[in-house]
Nucleic acid binder design. Structure first.
Length: 181
DNA sequence: CGCGTTTGACCGGCGC
DNA sequence: GCGCCGGTCAAACGCG
């Protein structure tokens, strides 16, 4: 199935790499959504795994990624009447890519970027620009292995994908997304 | 011009 | 209570 010479729909992101050596392996480990049961493929990890390990061998400091470790937890807030912020489950997966921006068919608007402790690369915060859709995602590159990009999705899209171009590759990618649901 | 990015300030939660 | 830290806001800027 992944024998197609499909490349990623990274058309506009010129990230210092004109010729991508990316192979089907990379595609195989991408776009797996929600099915993080035990698929420890070469590049897929659960959320709790995140990157909490490569860091902090010194024990102290920087293990505040509890927010990221909230995988399928439904946020059983022992708190209160007011649910202003409904923390929805997050889905994180790693991707072997040389570009940070993975085009998944949706249109995202970046709204923040913060430096990550124990990581030389910053983390970018994106939000779906569709009206009424507050799906968020954050993209982060591991400093441990800079060829790995961790993408964390939060929320579910309730609107059709708006694809900026109708390449055959894009359609195939979308099919991959859906089939993995 | 409209839309997206950049970037420092701001905010709320949690640990000490 | 204070300070750190992760996340978000928003004004200014850039680009097509």
């Amino acid at each position: 199935m992944e024998k197609y010479p499909i490349l990623f729909p990274v058309q506009q992101s010129s990230s210092s790499s004109t010729s991508f050596p990316q192979t089907s392996e990379m595609l195989g480990s991408t776009h797996v959504f929600g099915s993080l049961h035990g698929g420890n493929s070469s590049g897929l990890l659960g959320l709790k795994d995140f990157e909490g390990r490569g860091m902090s061998p010194q024990g102290d400091g920087a293990h505040h990624m509890k927010s990221l470790a909230s995988s399928m937890e439904n946020e059983t807030r022992p708190d209160k009447k007011k649910e202003k912020k409904v923390r929805r489950p997050r889905y994180a997966f790693q991707t072997r890519s040389q570009v940070d921006i993975l085009d998944d068919g949706y249109r995202w608007r970046k709204y923040g970027q913060k430096a990550v402790k124990n990581n030389k690369f910053p983390r970018s915060y994106y939000r779906c620009t569709h009206q009424g859709c507050n799906v968020k995602k954050q993209v982060q590159r591991l400093s441990r292995d800079e060829s790995i990009v961790v993408t964390t999705y939060e929320g579910m899209h309730s609107h059709p994908i708006e694809k900026p171009n109708d390449n055959f590759e894009d359609i195939l990618n979308q099919m991959q997304i859906y089939s993995n649901f």
